[in-house]
Amino acid sequence: MVRIGAFLVGLFFAGWLLISFLVGAVAYVSEPPAKTVEHEFHKHPKDVEFSFDGPLGKFDRAQLQRGFQVFKEVCSACHSLKFVAFRDLAGIGYNEAEIKAIAKQWAIKTPDVDPKTGEMSTREPVPADYFPKPFANNVAAAAANNNAIPPDLSLMTKARHDGTAYVYSLLTGYQNQPADLIKHFPDAKTPEGLHYNPYFPNLNLAMAPPLTADGQVTYGDGTKSSVDQMSKDVSAFLTWTAEPKLENRRRAGLATIVFLLIATALAYMSYQNIWADKKKAA
């Protein structure tokens, strides 16, 4: 009984799947799916090297500080960094006094309640505060940015595939639409107010090119601030904001694996010995 029932159920599912396949295959051959403009023109992130690449790479503190400067002077006007606190900057090599000064001088103030009147007000951030958001809420953010809400950047490099290279490619990838694209996909012309960028999934991005000129940021350490350099630095900084424990993780991992290799080798020898004993006893 079980086998007859199973046979019928199997025949039904397998048979209907094969029919579905034939229907799909006929449709696929008779009218092959049209290639989309994203399929043709979307590019994978560029290959770019960082000090933290590879299993044992470390952050370059000077680069992170430069990247932070780019974030501060350019990105932070529109993008929040809500999971990072000023105190976390100790992780990129600032000391307590410097962090205090950075927080105090931050252009955006921390919202608070006036202790005397109870009214909403703002105050200077302190190290324990998270980076204040540039817009009070999503509605304000959309209103100020042509209806596109600038995403929070704390986790950006983890929230995109190959995120660090993605951010770098996006920042350096703005260009005019290729003539080829207009020729094959006349409807895909970049709409007014958007910007063509082949590294963005749907090719047209609301954000205007943020890094446009060499020297837009003046680095304290004398590094030449080309667009490429600034993009690279801020990508590195955002990698740190997304994964501040990266170095701890790799250090702990190395120690753990060395320990486990020794322990496992011992376990193997012990296992062989115990079974060798069995040989004797038999």
Binding site: A263, A267, M269, S270, Q272, A276, K279, K280
Partner: peptide
Amino acid sequence: SVEHTDSQGLAGEDGVRRRDFINIAAVSFA
């Protein structure tokens, strides 16, 4: 005769001690 065919050469008093040591070491590591 088993001990002689044993390629690991674990015969004798020293062998027993070495083997105990490895088991103890493995358990201690764990």
